[in-house]
């Protein structure tokens, strides 16, 4: 047995440190922004590195797809229907004043397919999926569940992050298709409130006005939205700070950044699409 007698002397480590003065706070917030961006980039790179490595956790992907798809389905459908209806009702007076009422189905359908469907769906999912995934992963981090996975030789990144990102990337385009369909039905109702148009005629006009160039970018955009929402939410949750306060913060930031990301991606998508028009 050995006694470390030197340590008998009370060497109290003074850890009540004076914080840095606030003169550098602007600089440090810029620095922390870039740090955050670089960490997120690393996170995305890691996602792609782990994507093609076994094990593939198919069971978990299916479970998460169901969670993400089902959790947002009703909200997306109801909002989509109302958006279609309202858009039609509000566009009508303007079109009438130009004498272009007959263009109503065409105009509404193009705006739904190209913009409103994907963006509204993505925003709803950013709220619903983002806060859910952000809070779930953060609370797993706080209660050491992620550490527990790691020490039992399970790759938590693969099991938690990769599965959720794949699920979200696949499910959100699907939700967009539902939203578009329901939205067009809402629009049909909106048109019929004031005038009389048959179901066939309405959808004939709709399909006559929609081109491949309208549908494809919207669909691709939806994939990116799905990917972005999940990766940002997972990032916030996975690296959340400790303590229960970290959970609230993670879910909050997940929603804020995911929503912001949707508009930025949308803007980029619009620019790119314009190049091909």
């Amino acid at each position: 047995m050995k006694l470390d007698t030197v340590e008998n002397a009370q060497t109290d480590v003074n850890n009540s440190s004076g914080e840095e003065p606030s003169e550098e706070s602007a600089f440090s917030s810029i620095r922390s922004f870039f740090l955050e961006v670089s960490l997120l980039t690393k996170f995305i790179v890691r996602f792609f590195a782990e994507l093609f490595k076994a094990p593939f956790e198919f069971g978990e992907i299916i479970k998460q797809s169901f969670q993400i798809g089902y959790r947002s389905f009703y909200l997306v459908v109801i909002t989509g229907f109302i958006m279609g209806l309202v858009l039609t009702i509000q566009a009508r007076p303007t079109l009438i004043s130009f004498g272009a009422e007959a263009w109503l189905p065409a105009m509404v359908s193009v705006s739904i397919i190209r913009e409103i469907g994907p963006v509204i769906t993505a925003l709803i999912c950013a709220g619903k999926v983002g806060s859910g995934v952000g809070a779930e992963l953060a609370s797993m981090r706080v209660t050491e569940q992620i550490d527990a996975m790691e020490v039992s030789g399970i790759n938590p990144f693969k099991f938690l992050v990769v599965t959720r990102v794949i699920a979200s990337t696949c499910m959100i385009p699907l939700l967009v298709v539902f939203a578009d369909t329901v939205s067009l039905s809402g629009s049909y109702l909106g048109v019929n409130l004031e005038s009389d148009i048959s179901f066939n005629l309405f959808f004939n006009q709709v399909f006559a006005s929609i081109n491949f160039i309208d549908v494809l970018p919207a669909f691709i955009k939806a994939f990116f939205f799905g990917f972005g929402i999940a990766i940002i939410s997972c990032y916030q949750g996975y690296y959340s700070g400790h303590g229960t306060e970290g959970v609230g913060r993670a879910s909050n930031l997940a929603v804020v950044y995911a929503s912001l990301m949707i508009f930025i991606l949308d803007m980029i998508a619009a620019q790119i699409t314009n190049l091909f028009m």
Partner: peptide
């Protein structure tokens, strides 16, 4: 590397102070 670390971790059991059960 990661794989080797996971292999070693497979031989270690760790009981967390908080339990760390999977809630879901």
């Amino acid at each position: 590397n990661n794989d080797e670390l996971n292999q070693i971790r497979g031989k270690i059991g760790f009981l967390f102070q908080s339990g760390a059960l999977y809630d879901s």
